[in-house]
């Protein structure tokens, strides 16, 4: 039974692993930290899995556990380096300037998103995952109206970071 449970879980996780990678992409900025957070989210998912009921989609359930781990439960391990300091990033952005190439633009955008705080990142994550405001409000525990207002503020904040 336990073996079967484990087998099912690992199969599901392998299929949906990109969700965790995407959470890690927002909340970490180096290889070790990425793997560390990935590991912690996997443990939390596995611990919660026996209580997972089929009535929720596995991926939706993963969003919750993944974000909760990244925002609240995860303690950065000693070997991972803390997030880049704000000024360093800002300097790099202005030095690189806006380039027409798409790759360059994406790089700058990711850097800008990294400067948001944990809660803002969570909203950006759900937005990028095409979640509607009702789902965002449920995942975060805030009202739908507040989720909408916050999202607009985040967009403005990103614009300010990109065009200081």
């Amino acid at each position: 039974m336990n073996k079967e449970l484990k087998h099912n879980f690992v199969e599901l996780l392998e299929t949906h692993q990109n969700i965790i990678h995407k959470v890690c992409r927002l909340y970490t900025n180096n290889y070790d930290a990425h793997n560390d957070l990935f590991q912690e989210i996997t443990i939390q998912l596995w611990k919660a899995y026996p209580k997972f009921r089929g009535d929720a989609k596995f991926s939706t359930w993963m969003y919750r556990v993944g974000l909760n781990t990244a925002i609240t439960l995860y303690r950065k391990s000693k070997r991972t380096i803390d997030t880049q300091d704000f000024e360093g990033v800002a300097f790099k952005i202005s030095a690189e300037a806006y380039d027409d190439t798409e790759e360059q633009q994406l790089k700058i955008l990711y850097k800008a998103v990294h400067q948001l705080n944990d809660i803002e990142k969570a909203l950006v994550f759900l937005y990028l995952e095409d979640k509607n405001y009702s789902e965002i409000s449920e995942t975060m525990g805030i009202s739908e109206v507040n989720a909408r207002v916050k999202m607009n503020r985040i967009k403005t904040k990103l614009k300010t970071i990109l065009n200081p």
Partner: peptide, 8 residues
């Protein structure tokens, strides 16, 4: 861990 962020 499956509660919403605020409740957790």
């Amino acid at each position: 861990v499956t509660d919403n962020a605020k409740k957790l």
